[in-house]
Design a protein around this nucleic acid. Structure first.
Lengths: 348, 348
DNA sequence: TGAAAAATTGGAACCGCTTCCAACAATATT
DNA sequence: AATATTGTTGGAAGCGGTTCCAATTTTTCA
């Protein structure tokens, strides 16, 4: 205080004329503190502008109030910013509600050291728990390592995996695929095009299975559908949509496994002189910012990313604080909604 | 070790049969350690899978290796995800290179408690330094508070403010405005439309000043230009571009203060039957993901966000470690580039 | 009113690590 | 070979908190 040093609990204690233990009690709302003493301490705290040193506190407590989140990223490519930023904002909100701090890591998913990097983060034991996002959350080696260390871990990924090793947050992707298809069927569409995502992406595959179930339920013939496999890029959307549009029996509706490909499809439709949605309805998945900023605005399935982040932290903190065992904790499905914009319409 | 407890430095010491001080020396590459002892310690470390407890370490050291970054966000609106995620990835990379951790905060910029929240973060002294992003970095009260606490702080904002209170990272926005205008002038354009951003946004205003300087340098008449003020949204781009396009003396080139408005302008041009870039060239600023995903792809000024984040951490760590005074540390301009895509072309 | 019970308070140990300093060992110097 | 110098090592005292536990006060109740 006299010098530039930060005041400690002892400074507060001596200013207030009480013992250090009492200061600690006041600070932590401990029981059995006379109002009079509490007041003295509070005044000293204010006078000195005292803030507890969290480092010291968590050392004494043997616990840390810090959650780590691990994103995938490649410094040389554009980040999948929408996804990670959305999750992070939700996670931050929950952290702030629950008194935790969030520390971010980003790991190049192509690095051969992925496993070591993540295991360092875990074993370094400076976190109370971690959140894993794709593709790390789909890596069973990583998950098993976390489990064998009994380390609170939660993943954010496509909903409903068969053998969730750790609790998972996500939407029911299969249902989302089902419902957006049903939505189009209800609009009178009978012939569909579908541009799939990359094969190993669980979520995209589940969306596709949902599509298949919906057309089956509607007694539509799967063989009539035009299925192409894309790789999530705008460019692949352009190319594959062109093929679909130019085919002999052009579908009246085109479902794309993500918004970027749908944007590409939209572009191809315009280029080939089709009107959207009059001549063809096009829908996407994810509700990324681009879906609002193209013409016509895209009908798509909204991914509640912020809710993912929030729920992930909330559940993780339950695991941490109630010491619920990792394997007894349930995964959670977050509700999604279909955002109906102008790119899909009634047919026939 | 026997139980589930994490091994401590004492466990290592006793296993290696040396003193705790020696273990610490080995761990920190201290001088004067005989190879033989070092080897014993290293073996014990490996045998126990010992990791130092960072909490304890930084308590003893009286320093923390943690940098905070404060983003603006509103939980109920879409995040400005591209911006914050890009910066964060760069910052993370630098942190990982320099041995720091990055902790994220997000604060609703409309909250009346902004000042208190940020001052808590600073006074809490659990950070070695913080990075402020817009709009917080433009708030002089916050900056002054940081300075009066001698707290290492750096801002990422529009370059070259007159009175930088703390060192700043950014591009030279005025120059960017100048150069993209010059680029169009060199393509033969003489009559311009310009859709400005929100007035209080420093960076957008500087871009506009650059535009003005360029047309002045080229002896073009400012009064011939069609200037409109937008609010950065796609919608305002649509509306204002429509007015500009429908005006009697339609410009051959339209500059928009950000990409979203440029996307809107593109849309209006299509709707009104103009071909881009044949009939009108349209350019934006920022090089957000959308600029690649619309038709035609947008010529725009790339904001090197990851470089911002990297440079911010690097400079901040210099301030922290070399104890350079905040006010002697220079701001940095990062190079930007004009990304030429298909939305702008030769005229006449 | 006095003893027993309950509520307050603070001393001291401890969380896991760094580092000053004194003790001791190894090498250099004459 | 004796001494001066330099290199190694570990004991013990913090860093700034929390908490067990014993001491002291206050309250309760016969």
């Amino acid at each position: 205080m006299i010098s530039g040093k930060k005041p400690t609990i002892d400074d507060v204690a001596s200013l207030a004329g009480v013992g250090r233990t009492s200061v600690s009690r006041v600070l932590n709302n401990g029981p059995n503190v006379r109002p009079q003493l509490r007041e003295k301490v509070l005044q000293a705290v204010k006078a000195l502008n005292f803030k507890v040193n969290q480092q010291a506190r968590s050392l004494a407590l043997g616990e840390t109030k810090k959650i780590g989140i691990i994103h995938a990223s490649d410094f040389d490519k554009e980040p999948n910013s929408y996804y990670s930023a959305g999750i992070e904002i939700g996670a931050l909100r929950a952290c702030s509600d629950l008194g935790y701090a969030l520390q971010t890591h980003s790991i190049n998913q192509n690095s051969p050291k992925v496993f070591d990097l993540i295991s360092d983060i875990i074993l370094n034991n400076s976190y109370a728990g971690i959140i894993l996002t794709p593709p790390f959350c789909d890596d069973n080696n990583i998950l098993k390592m976390a489990i064998s260390n009994k380390f609170p871990t939660i993943s954010i990924s496509a909903g409903l995996k068969k053998n969730n090793l750790v609790p998972n947050i996500g939407i029911d992707e299969e249902k989302a695929g089902y419902e957006i298809t049903l939505n189009l069927i209800n609009k009178g569409h009978k012939k569909f095009g579908y541009i799939q995502g990359i094969e190993k992406h669980l979520s995209a595959e589940q969306r596709y299975f949902g599509f298949l179930r919906a057309i089956k339920d509607a007694n539509l013939s799967e063989s009539e559908m035009l299925i192409k496999r894309g790789n999530f890029t705008f460019k692949s959307g352009i190319e594959l949509a062109q093929k679909i549009i130019e085919s002999d029996n052009r579908p009246s509706a085109l479902i794309c496994a993500n918004d970027d490909m749908a944007a590409g499809a939209l572009f191809s439709a315009h280029k080939l002189g089709l009107k959207v949605p009059e001549d063809i309805s096009i829908v996407g998945f994810d509700d990324t910012p681009v879906s609002e900023i193209i013409w016509p605005p895209l009908t798509t399935v909204h991914q509640p990313l912020k809710e993912f982040g929030y729920a992930a932290v909330k559940t993780l903190v339950e695991i941490i604080e109630k010491r619920v065992a990792l394997d007894t904790c349930e995964s959670q499905l977050i509700d999604f909604i279909i955002v109906e914009r102008a790119s899909a319409a009634q047919f026939g």
